[in-house]
Design a protein around this nucleic acid. Sequence first.
DNA 1: GCGTACAAATTCAGTCATCAAACTATTTCG
DNA 2: CGAAATAGTTTGATGACTGAATTTGTACGC
Lengths: 406, 406
Amino acid sequence: MNQSGPAGQHTVRRHNSALVLNTIAAAGGLSRASVAARTGLTKATVSSLVDRMLTAGLVVDGGPEHRVGRGRRGTALSLSPAGPHGLGVEIGVDTLSCALVDLTGRVRVSWTRDVGRRGRTVEEGLSQVADLVGLAREEADRLGVSVGGVGVAVPGLVESSTGLLRNAPNLGWRDVPLHDELRARTGVTDRPLLVGNEANLAGLAELWFGGREDRRDFVHVSGEIGIGAGLVVAGELFPGVRGFGGEIGHLSVDPAGPPCSCGGRGCLERLAGRAAVLAAAGVPAEAEDGTGDGMAELLRRLGDDDPVALTAVTDTGRWLGIAMADVINLLDIPTVVLGGTYARLEPWLRSPLLAELDRRVVSSGWAPVAVEPSVLGSRAAVQGAAGWVVRGILDDPEPFLVGPPT
Amino acid sequence: MNQSGPAGQHTVRRHNSALVLNTIAAAGGLSRASVAARTGLTKATVSSLVDRMLTAGLVVDGGPEHRVGRGRRGTALSLSPAGPHGLGVEIGVDTLSCALVDLTGRVRVSWTRDVGRRGRTVEEGLSQVADLVGLAREEADRLGVSVGGVGVAVPGLVESSTGLLRNAPNLGWRDVPLHDELRARTGVTDRPLLVGNEANLAGLAELWFGGREDRRDFVHVSGEIGIGAGLVVAGELFPGVRGFGGEIGHLSVDPAGPPCSCGGRGCLERLAGRAAVLAAAGVPAEAEDGTGDGMAELLRRLGDDDPVALTAVTDTGRWLGIAMADVINLLDIPTVVLGGTYARLEPWLRSPLLAELDRRVVSSGWAPVAVEPSVLGSRAAVQGAAGWVVRGILDDPEPFLVGPPT
DNA sequence: GCGTACAAATTCAGTCATCAAACTATTTCG
DNA sequence: CGAAATAGTTTGATGACTGAATTTGTACGC
């Protein structure tokens, strides 16, 4: 109850608007009456709130509900696919991706642009992103939908309060004021522009679009070039104090292990990162420009039961297990979702990982841990970025409901 | 914004009552006008809210404010020392402690009872606790104050949703329904009865009573017989999904290290726990009944610059550093507070700990980490338990404000 | 085929907490 | 001693929810 400002009737409205909209989002095709029953609000109140959402175009009237039994049929309400869209952008190491997502979470358009080699300058990168956002907005115009905000995913540490990118080793960027720069360059000033860590957003994508409405607590591990994680607790991301949470890449799993570029020793990334796994499996190094696909080669060898590859991946599972056991002991999160590269390796990682977890997690005796592969592919982070914007609208629709008080 | 029930005027009242009360709590001796200015509410609203708190006895009118300059003087409002008290209980390994704390956080009465040897049965323990609560309530009657609730601290894993003690290795208790048992045995049925982990509550005590109003994010490490932690983020405890958060005792700091009773290897507790430190320092083992004071002996040797003791404590600092680096990388919490036993060792632990942190924390370059000793002594957990109740009252005073609407 | 039971949705008066502004009370300064 | 400044109270208006009554629409039974 600290520093949260005074409340008034408008606060109540905001809260209830979000409540109603989320209820409709969670179960599409509800009638006003069912919404009232589920939320605990009166039918009268729900009607009043829904009316404003209809006129604002957030919700559509889907005609009479299909229901058996007698009595008048309700009108099925659902989120409007023509409502404001979320625009997600992902700044990858050698690609830029982009997606337009509607309120229901469906990806309307998405595209990826190869921007070539690593090591491009900050200036180049920023203007490329701005161009892409411009194109996406034109596309939105063509589709006749508005852009409700922009979410940007970056492979680096982003200070949540300022939108400052502190450090992105794989991009070679440091201390870039991403939020402010992109606001200026894209001209998006009247809608939210959110900047976040790629791994965190991938975790959120898994929560929102991964079809796991039941699981609201998990660690999503995304192994791309680095290793990151999204900590999802009670259906929300745990971002850490300043937004640097979930940096599991440099958890120390073997204090006496090989030195890591971060200065520590035996970091998870050094032992179980993509490069380490490929090297241990004897797969030739990938080209610097990302052309060689070592992962495909590794999967092929695993399929052939190559003993060196199998050992390498088993070891990886063990290292991951040690790190995840720490996470679970510390945060008490019972489920591990393997995303990114690890999703494809899940069949081989699963068993050594679980063995390590069973051994090390204090609560495993009465609260078994689960390991699952992610269902989203490489687009998880973009989707998460776009979904972030959409989520923002659902969680506070009031700015869009400019309609008359009554 | 999920599952949070409908809001109405009463919600607004609740919120604003808490806001006003917390404002008064944060800076005692405020006038209604200053409260209005700080909260953003109108003077009229504040007056209305404060009136009810005065009649309920949560707040007292301290007479005219002492202020220079012209204009009428306000009346100084502060939390009432005669208002409802929080009753805290700590179930220790061989002691039971108890404290009555008023709304301002002052400990009115506190006492500790030696209940002898380890290994007493659950039945004995529960009835001892019930007795103690009974005595404390009599004492409260004698003081003429009411008990607003009971908080219980236990050295074990407590499931927050049910108040079930899953496992307390040092007590030898497993699966004890503490909340339900204590409700039945103490007859406290109309007020909250909260059960929580000792280390978590010690962390909260540090937050509320440690005089660190500025620091609202830290990890409080309490090394008693086991090692636990309280993760405080944004002024709130992060309890984990089911309440088992902060179990750092079995973080793996050396996967190839000595086997631990938990089944893992190289756990922090095994390497840096009280027993391990004393053994490494060459201090004779403490008696099973806790009579020998190995820690005093260790401090003596450290004072004499005993090289074996110094090495042992330096190593401990390193192990702690490895574990804390993991915590910081994962949760992005910039401050480590050393509590319990470690507080006394802080002068010797500090430097190796910081060195390890600087090396391993990804964000240490631009966001330096801090290490501080706890200011609370061994009573931290009891105070936290009692403070938990008090905090509950401040954060939702409405149940106490039964007064008329106007 | 028609009336009745039933459910959805709307309407309208009532309640309640906040706000804004006017008003009273108290203190200082010139 | 009066003007200015600050604290606190009173009063009427606003807005959002509730609850009950009303209207609208659908299905079942006779």
